[in-house]
Design a protein around this nucleic acid. Sequence first.
DNA 1: CCGTGTGAGTTGGTTTTTCCAACGTACTCG
DNA 2: CGAGTACGTTGGAAAAACCAACTCACACGG
Lengths: 144, 144
Amino acid sequence: MKTDVRECSVARTLELVGSKWTLLVVRELFLGSRRFEEIVRFTGGPRDILTDRLRSLEAHGLVTRVQYEQRPPRFEYHLTELGRSLAPIIAAMREFGDRHLAGEDGPPLRFEHSCGSEFHPVLACKACGEVVRSGEVEIAEAAR
Amino acid sequence: MKTDVRECSVARTLELVGSKWTLLVVRELFLGSRRFEEIVRFTGGPRDILTDRLRSLEAHGLVTRVQYEQRPPRFEYHLTELGRSLAPIIAAMREFGDRHLAGEDGPPLRFEHSCGSEFHPVLACKACGEVVRSGEVEIAEAAR
DNA sequence: CCGTGTGAGTTGGTTTTTCCAACGTACTCG
DNA sequence: CGAGTACGTTGGAAAAACCAACTCACACGG
């Protein structure tokens, strides 16, 4: 049996953020959580796994761990520039969830854009600048 | 210890597509694979797990399993409309991978926006429609 | 009509991950 | 002093993933 695994950007990205809890950690950091206890509380993930995910994100340069207190030693987690560039992935998931798996309660956190109104992230097409809705993006070509 | 897990669209989306191999199966279907053996070959995933993922995607209405031959029984997998609306998620992951984890080979997946040009996702503010740059989004209120 | 091949799984057993509760450490506060 | 908080680590159980081999149903070549 020939095994002809496709090397692609999607697979490579999933290697960084594809394991359980990782993207929830990232979401939590986007939502403004900085401390370990917050991440535990708001994701609901096991502490040891979350530790592991944070270390892994750190190792890949998506997150920095900063000591903000020496006595006792306390740390904060921040997304790096690279980590923040995961925003479209989180945004696309939010969009999908909002549209197709909506709960009654709205988004748990409110962001504000510099335009003054509440920020709801959506994906836009870089070429035309238009906001993209589900169904407007199609596969163009199957490059086998 | 209070456990105040955040119910959000990201978490709900991850419940559908967050387990290992699922998004690679979806990518494969976007790339035009239809048959089980193709999915096995191109994702490299274990057959039993891939079976499980396909059943799960089917159960959630993201994929349909169609018999295209009775003797011997053979099946095809197709993304449903709902499944195709995962495109922005896959696109965002591809974009991240292309930009930051690039291999030599170009992007295997080409998406097309309805405007006609190749789709590269960027983040925009839903309210004003403007493309967002880092630092333009602030937390308005922590709704914990 | 026999042996080989293909497609789509299923099975049994091993390995790897995850999960959970409890513990440790290093403080602060009353 | 005792309780509480923050940030983990540990050990063992449970769940998930992995793998090779097997099944079934047929098709095809010799």
